[in-house]
Structure formats: structure tokens, C-alpha cells
Design a protein around this nucleic acid. Structure first.
Lengths: 212, 212
DNA sequence: AGAAAAACTTGACGACTGTCAAGGAAAAGC
DNA sequence: GCTTTTCCTTGACAGTCGTCAAGTTTTTCT
């Protein structure tokens, strides 16, 4: 093959691959919404296809099997979810502002993206039973940990103190609060959610020791 | 009906009811083990029956439907699980002893009953999708909160201090640590589990302020 | 415009699901 | 010991599942 011909071939192949990937992503997003609505246990390929503009057979044209499809959907989740607070971190000038805006966004996404979040917890739990999910789950969990670490360490910096506990502990605490708030939110228990909102700043304060 | 006859009838009825309940519990326990092994999404009635000494049809003799069966299984879980640390609380004479024995039992049951625990988290998550689980889940969650509160408040008492955060926050934190330890345990990541073990006492210490 | 390749639909397969009715086996009552 | 009730098994039902092959439509290339 000549150079020109091979480069042309490359261009074609690349365009095909891009198109292929675009459709894959489109279907993965449809999968994500179906999973968020029904949960892992009740999501079928036909249901996913109905949430897209295609028929159920096309899923096996773009994905090897169901696991492949769901794995790709989880990756889509990650793209959306692990940079949520970065802008708050970047633009906040004072500790109080950072804290307040973090709390606001925390409970904003809790209400806004509740179904997506419950899906995440569902899949993280699936990984306790299904080994093939574990690597992806642990990776995303790590990114979530980094995400809250960026918030809290920056908060400590602004407040002129130091973080008193490990990144893992911070994540575990904030994630635990979020999980409980999500359960209470979906159960329609607004009072409990409101109380967690009050307690969240104090929990952050507890993990950051002010320099004396 | 004479008094004697009615009392005799009562006795018979009661015996029948007891026997009925005993078999129900037996089948609920088999269900619990199957759920712990396979997870909610992959547990079928036939699989449950194979983990008992009966055939699959008998399940509909003792339970109205699958939901009824699983609900009963969850109640069995609760019986085992929400009094785990009570003896430690009752017998510990010093704060250090209480803390150390709590941590020991915490990580003991993590390894020992890992499959049961992952089932609990699985079902708690199901309640995010399936409304009919929510009441039971919230009730058990409350009992778990009470359980860790008994530990930490007693610890504060022994150490001569006060608990610095709400019962809900304590539960959320300890449960978060447990969940993460469980994931790492099942993933075979012993190092991460060991590190959480080191950090757990510090986390407890952070939530209890020593009187000065 | 015609040929080739890619994209998508349709329908079918075997396996598995919860449920339940019919009937056999065991226990209880007399 | 015989009858009645309780307990349990078996087999079938209607439905759903993931998967895939065959065929149709659409796009791409020459």
C-alpha cells in the first residue's frame, strides 16, 4: 500500500471507529437511564432498547454481551460524576464559601440525580457478588475519593488548618452521609434529609483541625 | 364448646401454628443463605429450594409469594445482626478494652459473615428501587444505628467524655467504614482492610471529646 | 448507477422465571 | 384401622430472559 492510500485507509477506518464509538456511547447512555430507573436486577436488554431508538438486536451488534454493555454504561456514569465539585473548588475564595457551595451542590445532586446515584450504589454492591465488576468499581470509588479529597484539602487550606484524617476516612464519611440522605430522600423523608444537611458542615469541620 | 374443649383446641391450634412458623423460619434461613451466596438479582425460588431439604413447590405453601419469602428472610437477618456488640458493651470495664474488643469483633464479623453482610447492603439498595422493602430496611437501619450508639456512648462514658456528634453521624461513619472494608475484603485486598483497622479507633476517638 | 459493506430489524432458540393446580405421602384424629 | 387433614412433590402454565442467525434497509465506495 502506498503512503497516500494507507493514510486514506486510516482516515476511513478512523471515521468508522468514531461512528461506531458514538453509537456505542449513545446506547450506553440509554442503558444508564434504564438501569437508573429499574435497577440492575430488573433491567433487560429489550427494556434498554425501548429506551433507545433502536431494536433489541442492535445491542449485540455494538456489544459482545450484557456485561460488556453494562460495563460501558458504568464508564459513562463515571464521566459525569467524578468532577462534580471541581468548579466549586476552583472558584471559591473563602473557606465558608467553599463549604456552603459544596453542601449546596451535595444536596442539589442528591435530589436532581437521585436515580443515577442509586444506580451507582446498586452496581457497587453488585461488585460484591460479581467479580467482573470489581475492578471498574474500585477504580471509580478511587476517583470519588480523590474528588472529595480535593474539596476537603482545599477547605483546610483556605481555613488555614490541616486535614485531621486520611482521604479514605473522609470519603467513607461523606459517602455514608450521601447514601443515607439518598435513602431518606427516596423514602420521602424530607426531615431526615434536612437534618443531614445541617450536620454535614459539622462533619467536615470535625475532619479539619484549625491551626492554633 | 366447653372450656376444656376450647382450651384443647387452642393448644392444638397453637401447636400447629408453632410448627408452621418453625418451617417458615427454616425456609427463611435457607433463603437467607442462598441470597447471601448469589445476591438478590440472581436468586430464584428453585435455587432456594435446592439449599433446603424440600422441593420448590413447598415455598408457596408457606409463603404467599417471593416478596413475602424474602421479607421473612430479611427479618431473620435482623435477629442475628443487631445485637452483635451488646456483650462487648456489657462486659468491658475500661474504655480501652471496649474500644479494642469492638474493633476486634468489627473485623471478625467482617471476615466471618462477609456474605451475609453483602446481602444486607444488597437489600438496602434494593429498597432504593423497590418501595415495598423500604419500611423493613429503615427499621433495621434504625436498629443498627442504636447498636453502634450503645457502643460509642458507653465508650464516651468510660472515657469520661461526651459524644461529639449525633447517633446518625456515628452510624453513617462506622457503616461507611464497614462497607468499604467489606468491598476490600471480598476483593482480596488485605492491606486496605488492615489500614481501615488501624484507622477505626482514631475515627471513634474523633467522635468522642474527652472532658478536660 | 451499480456493487459492496455497514447498520439495523425481525423472529426464533433454549433456558429460566414465579406461580399454581393436581395428586401422592405422611400425620393426626377418632 | 380407617378417615380426614396436613404436608409436600411433581409437572405444567405463561411469561421473560440473553443470544444469535437470517434477512432487510441504509450508507458508502467506485
Amino acid at each position: 500500500m502506498t503512503d497516500v492510500a494507507s493514510r486514506k485507509q486510516d482516515r476511513i477506518t478512523r471515521r468508522q471507529v468514531d461512528k461506531f464509538d458514538a453509537r456505542r456511547t449513545e446506547l450506553a447512555v440509554a442503558t444508564l437511564h434504564t438501569l437508573a430507573e429499574l435497577g440492575y436486577a430488573r433491567t433487560s436488554l429489550r427494556e434498554i432498547a425501548q429506551n433507545s431508538e433502536f431494536s433489541h438486536g442492535v445491542l449485540h451488534y455494538y456489544f459482545a454481551d450484557k456485561r460488556d454493555l453494562i460495563t460501558e454504561a458504568v464508564r459513562q456514569y463515571e464521566v459525569v460524576c467524578v468532577t462534580r465539585y471541581d468548579e466549586v473548588v476552583a472558584t471559591s475564595a473563602t473557606a465558608d464559601q467553599l463549604r456552603d457551595e459544596f453542601v449546596a451542590m451535595f444536596f442539589d445532586t442528591l435530589g436532581q440525580d437521585a436515580t443515577l446515584h442509586r444506580l451507582w450504589y446498586d452496581l457497587r454492591n453488585q461488585s460484591l457478588f460479581d467479580e467482573s465488576f470489581r475492578a471498574d468499581v474500585l477504580e471509580i470509588d478511587g476517583h470519588r475519593e480523590d474528588m472529595v479529597w480535593r474539596v476537603v484539602s482545599r477547605y483546610a487550606e483556605l481555613v488555614g488548618g490541616t486535614v485531621a484524617v486520611s482521604p479514605g476516612m473522609i470519603y467513607v464519611t461523606l459517602d455514608g452521609i450521601f447514601q443515607r440522605a439518598l435513602l431518606n430522600h427516596l423514602a420521602g423523608n424530607a426531615d431526615s434529609v434536612a437534618q443531614l444537611r445541617v450536620e454535614l458542615p459539622a462533619a467536615i469541620g470535625l475532619m479539619v483541625s484549625t491551626a492554633e
